[in-house]
Every structure is written in C-alpha cells, then in structure tokens.
Amino acid sequence: HNLTITQGKLFFHYNPKLCLSEIHKMEEVSGTKGRQERNDIALKTNGDQASCENELLKFSYIRTSFDKILLRWEPYWPPDFRDLLGFMLFYKEAPYQNVTEFDGQDACGSNSWTVVDIDPPLRSNDPKSQNHPGWLMRGLKPWTQYAIFVKTLVTFSDERRTYGAKSDIIYVQTDATNPSVPLDPISVSNSSSQIILKWKPPSDPNGNITHYLVFWERQAEDSELFELDYCLKGLKLPSRTWSPPFESEDSQKHNQSEYEDSAGECCSCPKTDSQILKELEESSFRKTFEDYLHNVVFVPRKTSSGTGAEDPRPSRKRRSLGDVGNVTVAVPTVAAFPNTSSTSVPTSPEEHRPFEKVVNKESLVISGLRHFTGYRIELQACNQDTPEERCSVAAYVSARTMPEAKADDIVGPVTHEIFENNVVHLMWQEPKEPNGLIVLYEVSYRRYGDEELHLCVSRKHFALERGCRLRGLSPGNYSVRIRATSLAGNGSWTEPTYFYVTDYLDVPSNIA
C-alpha cells in the first residue's frame, strides 16, 4: 500500500525493539523526510534493546553428524571492536523451508527459537588472519532439518551509529543413524509349514526405512522333555500350542467401542483428552525405555581390526524358502538304536541362519518350516543398504507352526516275539517326523474274553527296548493296539495285532 503524509511529521519514542533503520525507511515511504526535528525521533529510546544489523554474515563451514552440527561463519568486528559482546545463534526444527525470524513471537518477546549466546573469538592483530567464530550444536535429532541463523550482539553506541551483522536463515539436516526397533511384532501360524509375521514401523526411523531383515531359527525343545518319565503317576503330560491366527481386521481397528449394538453396526467412541494424553505418555515412556535398553543392555560386537582377528559373527547367506525346513542338525536320541526319531534339535552355532529381506511392506510369510516346531524370529529395521547396512537392534518374537495331521501315527506293522515265561516283546517304529517329539506310547492289549488293559511306555523305555515287553501273560489269544502321544496330543491307534500265548508248562520236552 502507498502511504503519503502531505502535512505533519513523524514522532517515535520509547520503541526499544524498533531499529532506527526501520524508522528511516518509514520517513522515505511516507514522504516526511526532512520535516522531523532532532528530538522527534529519539536516538536513545528507539532500538536500544534490539540488534540492528546492516551487514550480512556468511557461514564459512558446515559439518553434520547424526546428532551434531558444527558451524563456522566469517569474522565480524565493528569499528570499535570492544562493542562486540558476542553472537546469538538461533535454531529450531523446520520440516519445511518457510521459516521466518519472527515465527511464534508474542507480545512478551518470546519466540519459538532456541538461542545460544556465543563469546567472540580472540581478536588477531592481523586483519587478514582473524579467527572464524563458530559453535557445535549438540543433542539434535537424527535425520531432522533445522533452520539456523546467527547475528551479532553489540553494545549501545553513544554516537548512535547503527552497526551489526546478521546471516540469512539456512537449512541444515542432520545425518541418518540406526533406527529404533520395529514396533509390535506379531507372529502367527496359518499352516503346519508357515508363519505369518506382521509389525509396525519404528517410532524413530532416523532416516528413510529402506528394508527390513527377518531372521528365523528353529528352537530346540526343553531338555526336561527328553529326561522326564511322563508315565509316572502324578506327572502331567506336557503340551505345546501353536500360535493362533490373526483376529479379523475389524476387531483390530483402534479407537473402536468394545460393545456392539445388537441391531447392527455401531460407531466408534472418540477417545477423551485424558485417554489420548495417557497414550502419549505411555508411548514416550516406551521410547525412553527402549533407548535405555539399547544403550545399557546391548553391547556392540567388536569388529575385526587390522591384526587379522576374525569377526566372530557368522556370515549372512541367503537361502531359498524351500530350504528352511531342514535348518537344524538332527541327532538321534540314543545312538545305539537307529530307529528312534531325530527330534532332539541342538543347533550348531556355526550354522548360517536363513533370512529374508523385506522391502516396502511390514509383513512376511515364512514358508518351508517344520510342522509343530518353535521358531525364534528376529526382526531388524534398516535405513541404508549400501555401502553397508545400517540397521536397528533386533526385536524378537516366537511362534510355533501348526501340527501336521497323521504325523504322530505309527507307520509300519507292530511285530512281536514270544519268549519263555510268557513274555512277549512288542516292537514298532517311532514316527519319523512327529509333531514336536514323542513323549510316550500307549499300549492297549486284551486277552479274548477279558477286559482291555493299558500300559504306558516312556520315551526312554522305548529307546532301550525298541518297544516294550509284556510279562506274566496268561495263555490265550491276544490283540494289541499302540498309539503315540506327542507334544500336540495323541496320534491314531494302530491296526490290531494278534498273537497267541501258550502255557509254557505244557511245552513238550526233548528229553527222552
């Protein structure tokens, strides 16, 4: 807008934040220059609390790290170098490059900038070799853009010569660093050979998330399962459950009422301010606690030095998902009996873990797994792929695949051998790939016309006998059925096997 004052003059007093240069501009645009008398524009009460600059400061050096910015700028000295009290560095987070010096300023003089007072450097006698002032900004957020400017702080001049310097606002972004852990990993099994893994992005990506790394490792069953005799009275049979499938998407929606109208769909109840505040506090606490764990609990591995020492970490090797089922080394339970199943799973520490690289999504279907087997899954978020990966501390989750139908069934015939004193040795093959492992066998036998009897055969007993022995049988026709019990439950009964026990007292003698 054009402003013209045809008559009258300007009068400025007691404006401590208004620089004289701005008042002189007002004289020019209003056409009143030359009308004012000496005392109409006070030299001592206008701009006496402001830094009124008329020179431009330029930054000469900028260096960044993930949490620091090192700045240096060209030296500046007023005509009387004693008038320079120091520099004021202003900075704040700036997602967009549209910041002005006066953003967030209120009537009390406060604003949204963080201000650092910096002492002037030592003055050199040689004007050509003056030290460049600077400042190291610490405690910054990774991968965050900051708006920065600097200006001088000078003393009051009796001659009211307006001098000083100020830089333009520059924008500097800190470097990326390792992201925080992925949030809320959930693993479920939808079949006997697959596990579905879902997660949420890290709360602090500290860069642009480029991919996720998912490692999985087959877990050995508890050692007590191999040692305890679950045929003993009072000892509860062990059981394991597989990871249940995901709930429906509708039930997972946030901010939804727990109660549904019987007449149909209901609208979600909005969260109160107290609920939102509580969630923010919980989120802040979780982030602080995660940072504490990362800094205190997890110790970084030592990389190899120039002395030739090897990095103890196993090298990563990509495998196809079809090879995942046989990740671990199978060892027989008892070496003397080769027909026992290889369900003991000690994992070799030198073995390469299978892994998958996930790009542009937060889910993965891990296939080719062994049925009813526990897996430990390790999830890392990465925001750099080359020249070397920059990934987060791992988040861990466990899951067990679903049982395989008929995996616990005894394959092959049940054979028998009759000894003296009416002892019958029953023999059968253990299931080759049971659900988890076989903890015991149930032997059901009966003599024709009598009630059915049951015998429990422990895992250890089966390994020693290759089956079991029935003792003290009365003469007669017998039928026997056997079924295995694994961590997933009972298998199917075998087809009945028949044998006849004679009275050993009636056996004919070869003595003449």
Rank of each mutant, 00 (worst) to 15 (best):
Y396D: 02
Y478L: 00
V439W: 09
E442Q: 05
P349M: 06
S342P: 11
P431Y: 01
E356M: 14
K278G: 05
V397W: 14
R240G: 10
R240M: 09
A395G: 12
L453D: 06
P300D: 15
Q380W: 08
E265S: 09
Y498Q: 12
V365E: 10
G234M: 13
I410Q: 07
L237V: 14
D273S: 07
L228S: 05
A463R: 10
F215T: 06
Y478R: 00
Y448C: 13
S320I: 12
S248T: 10
T343M: 09
F355L: 10
D311S: 13
F298S: 07
V424M: 03
Y445H: 03
N339S: 12
S392K: 01
G449R: 11
G325T: 15
V439F: 06
H461I: 10
R447C: 05
W242V: 14
L213Q: 12
Q384H: 15
Q256K: 07
V501M: 13
I418L: 11
K406V: 14
Y498I: 15
E452K: 11
A395H: 12
G325A: 12
E260K: 02
N339T: 12
E227V: 11
A336N: 05
W242I: 04
R318M: 12
V324D: 04
Y396G: 12
E249W: 06
V443A: 07
P238E: 06
I366N: 01
R390H: 02
N360S: 09
I377E: 00
V324L: 09
Q384I: 10
R483T: 01
F215H: 10
S341W: 12
G207S: 15
F372Y: 14
S342D: 04
G264E: 14
D503R: 09
P332K: 02
A407C: 01
S284Y: 03
E451A: 14
K287V: 14
V443Q: 00
T340H: 04
K278H: 02
S315Y: 11
R240K: 11
V327Q: 06
N339C: 07
E378A: 10
R353H: 06
A309F: 04
D229W: 10
D311Q: 15
V299T: 06
N360R: 13
G449N: 11
T373H: 14
K361G: 11
V297S: 10
Q252F: 15
V214W: 01
A395C: 07
Y212I: 15
V424R: 01
S474V: 12
P300K: 07
V334G: 11
R483V: 02
V334H: 12
N208Q: 02
S492P: 11
C382F: 01
S268Y: 04
T415A: 07
W493S: 05
L228T: 06
D506T: 06
F372W: 10
T502Q: 13
F226A: 10
D222Q: 13
E451P: 11
D229N: 12
H416Y: 09
T307M: 06
M402P: 10
G436L: 07
P338W: 13
R446H: 13
E389D: 08
D222N: 13
G472F: 11
Y448E: 15
D323F: 11
L505V: 09
N435M: 00
C267L: 05
R390W: 12
E282S: 10
G476S: 01
R469F: 13
F372H: 10
S243N: 11
V331Q: 13
N490M: 07
N490C: 11
S392V: 01
V423I: 06
I209N: 13
S367L: 12
V299W: 02
E221R: 12
E279S: 05
D222T: 08
D311E: 13
V324F: 03
E249S: 07
R390M: 14
G472L: 07
H454A: 04
L379R: 00
S392T: 02
E417Q: 11
E282C: 04
N255K: 04
T210P: 14
H425N: 12
A263I: 14
T343I: 06
H425W: 05
R481V: 11
N326F: 06
G436V: 07
L364V: 04
S398Y: 04
K432C: 09
A381S: 13
E221D: 08
F372E: 03
S458I: 03
F462E: 02
A381T: 13
E247P: 09
L364M: 11
L225R: 13
D506Q: 15
T272V: 06
V439S: 04
D503Q: 05
T303S: 07
T347I: 13
W428Y: 01
H254E: 07
Q429R: 02
R353I: 14
M427L: 12
E404P: 02
H294A: 03
V334M: 07
T343E: 07
S398Q: 04
S251P: 12
R319Q: 05
C267Q: 05
D323A: 08
E282D: 05
E388T: 06
V359W: 11
T485M: 11
D385N: 03
S363E: 13
S320P: 03
Y230Q: 13
S223L: 06
F285N: 10
L228G: 14
V439A: 06
S223H: 10
N383P: 02
K361H: 06
S492A: 06
C267Y: 13
S304L: 06
L440G: 04
S344V: 09
M427P: 02
H461L: 10
P314L: 02
L437M: 09
D222C: 09
Y230P: 05
G374A: 03
D409S: 06
M402I: 14
Y212K: 00
Y504E: 13
S248V: 08
S486I: 00
K287F: 14
V358K: 09
Y230H: 02
L464N: 09
D204V: 12
V414Q: 03
F462S: 05
H416F: 10
F419M: 05
V359S: 12
S444F: 09
S486N: 02
V296E: 07
T386E: 09
K357Y: 05
L487I: 10
E217L: 15
A399R: 07
T288G: 08
L364S: 05
N295D: 04
K460V: 08
S479P: 00
N295T: 06
E221P: 05
P508K: 04
P300G: 09
V457A: 04
Y441I: 11
N435A: 02
A263V: 05
C231T: 02
T241E: 04
V480H: 00
A263C: 09
R459L: 07
M427Q: 09
S492T: 03
W242R: 04
K460E: 10
V443Y: 01
A381I: 01
F499A: 02
L453E: 06
T347N: 08
H211W: 05
T502Y: 14
T485A: 03
N421W: 15
E356Q: 05
S479H: 06
S257C: 07
L379W: 04
G412S: 14
F298E: 14
G308R: 09
A381Y: 02
T272F: 14
L237N: 15
Y292H: 07
F337Q: 11
N255V: 10
E389H: 14
P245T: 08
V327I: 06
S392A: 01
S262V: 03
A463P: 06
Y478T: 01
G264D: 12
D408F: 01
F462P: 02
L228R: 06
R390L: 10
F298V: 05
V365H: 12
S262T: 10
L464K: 04
P312T: 08
P238K: 11
Y230E: 03
V297D: 08
L232P: 14
L321V: 11
E433Y: 12
F289M: 10
P354G: 12
S268T: 14
E227D: 10
Q256T: 06
P332T: 06
S268L: 09
R376V: 08
L440M: 14
E433R: 10
R286Q: 05
G264H: 12
E249Y: 01
I276Q: 14
T502E: 04
H461A: 12
P338C: 09
G207T: 01
S458L: 12
C269E: 08
V501K: 03
A399N: 07
E452A: 13
E452Q: 15
E221K: 08
N510S: 07
R483P: 00
R376Q: 08
R469V: 09
H454L: 07
I410T: 05
S320A: 11
L277P: 15
M427S: 10
E417F: 11
P245Y: 14
R316S: 07
R319V: 06
P496Y: 10
E247S: 09
Y259K: 09
D450W: 08
N383C: 13
S367D: 10
S509N: 09
V393E: 13
S243P: 10
R459V: 13
L369W: 01
E265V: 05
L470S: 00
S257W: 03
L455A: 09
V329A: 15
L237F: 07
F355H: 10
L473N: 08
S492I: 13
F337C: 08
V423W: 11
Q252E: 09
P387Y: 14
K233I: 14
S304P: 14
A263R: 14
F462R: 14
Y500P: 06
F355G: 09
G234S: 09
L232Q: 04
E389S: 09
G449E: 15
Q275N: 13
G476L: 00
Y292N: 09
T303V: 05
S284G: 07
E404A: 03
D503H: 04
